[in-house]
Amino acid sequence: MQVKIFAPHWGSNELPPEVFIARVLEAGFDGIEMSLPLDAAARGDWVRRIADAGLELIVAQWETVFHSGFEAHRRALGELLENACAARPLLVNSHTGKDFYSPQQNEELIALAAAVSREHGVDIVHEIHRSRFSGHPALLLPYLERLPQLQLTADLSHWCVACESLLEDQAGMLETVLPRVRHIHARVGHAQGPQVADFRAPEAAPELAAHLAWWDRIVSLRRAAGADTMTITPEFGPAPYTFTQPYTRQPVSNAWELNVAMLGLLRERYVAASSSS
């Protein structure tokens, strides 16, 4: 199984495409995860540039966060997923639904995503994320029971916050959820927030160990299932995800540097180890 590691565009949005893509290539990522503009020409420009650089693409759909009303959310989701699939990415990672929508409403949105996926032949996976239908284990589990084809992106840092823990007391829940994961967001969270200041710091060791154990389990499950590819995106984000100093609001760490450092850790753990075994 190939493990491919993607660079997040989040946090580098201010860079011109050619500058960002050069940065991604220099760091050694396999591809880019990003949202795409709805304008067809602008979308096509990004897709061409990424392909010409020899990189792969995962499209992120997160913009439905701006639509709290159900009908507006449903319309936006359909448009954004159609736009994402038109780029023919490796997969689409979607922020879907709301934690305050009814189960019937969220399942309508999941069904819409499944229909778009079938139409285009592109996998759409739904991100574990605060405020979405998956924002807490107790919210997600009933959907997994009713929807056996539901596939997930594991950003378990969000559940650390939602459950105010490193999920130590929820091993059974994780064994139900992790087999549904097809994509990982490799950010390290803690019981009071979705991102530690620096995962390399000794005080973050327990959090890093917990996340690595979850990612190890997911990779192992995908290998056992005979998957051809496992995708991972380091996703340390800019302020306010990155801590800032009071008054000056200067970041205490650099999100891009953390993502590149996580790339190195993941490559050594899952790529180098696999090629040497």
Rank of each mutant, 00 (worst) to 15 (best):
A113D: 09
L141W: 04
L109F: 09
Q149H: 14
L167A: 07
F236Q: 00
Q192T: 09
A154D: 11
V24E: 07
F66N: 11
D45Q: 09
E119D: 14
Q61A: 13
G193M: 02
L36T: 08
N254V: 01
W159T: 01
T176S: 01
S274L: 11
A225F: 13
A210Y: 03
S275L: 15
L152F: 10
F133Y: 09
E164W: 00
V116E: 13
L258K: 07
L212E: 05
G135C: 05
P89M: 07
R217P: 08
M173P: 00
T242R: 07
M230Y: 05
W46Q: 07
H185Q: 15
N259P: 10
W46S: 06
S277H: 13
S35Q: 10
G226T: 06
G189C: 05
R267P: 15
D52C: 12
E56G: 15
A41N: 04
P194L: 04
E82A: 09
D39R: 05
L109P: 13
N93G: 03
G226W: 02
E71T: 13
F20S: 12
R48G: 14
L81N: 07
F20L: 14
T153K: 09
L266C: 06
A42I: 00
A154S: 15
V24Q: 03
N83F: 05
E33Q: 12
N83D: 04
R23L: 12
R249Q: 13
A27P: 12
V252A: 00
A84N: 10
L208K: 10
Q2T: 13
A197E: 14
A205D: 04
P103L: 00
P137E: 05
V125P: 09
D198E: 11
A209L: 06
F70R: 03
L152K: 07
G31M: 14
G54T: 00
A213T: 06
S220E: 15
A191P: 00
R182E: 11
V219P: 10
H183C: 05
G226P: 13
D52Y: 09
P89F: 02
D30T: 06
H136A: 07
Y143E: 09
R223M: 09
Y270R: 00
G237F: 04
V47Y: 10
A27L: 13
L178N: 05
P37F: 06
T229P: 11
A186K: 02
R23V: 05
L80K: 06
W62P: 03
A53G: 07
G31T: 02
A239M: 02
A86I: 00
V125S: 08
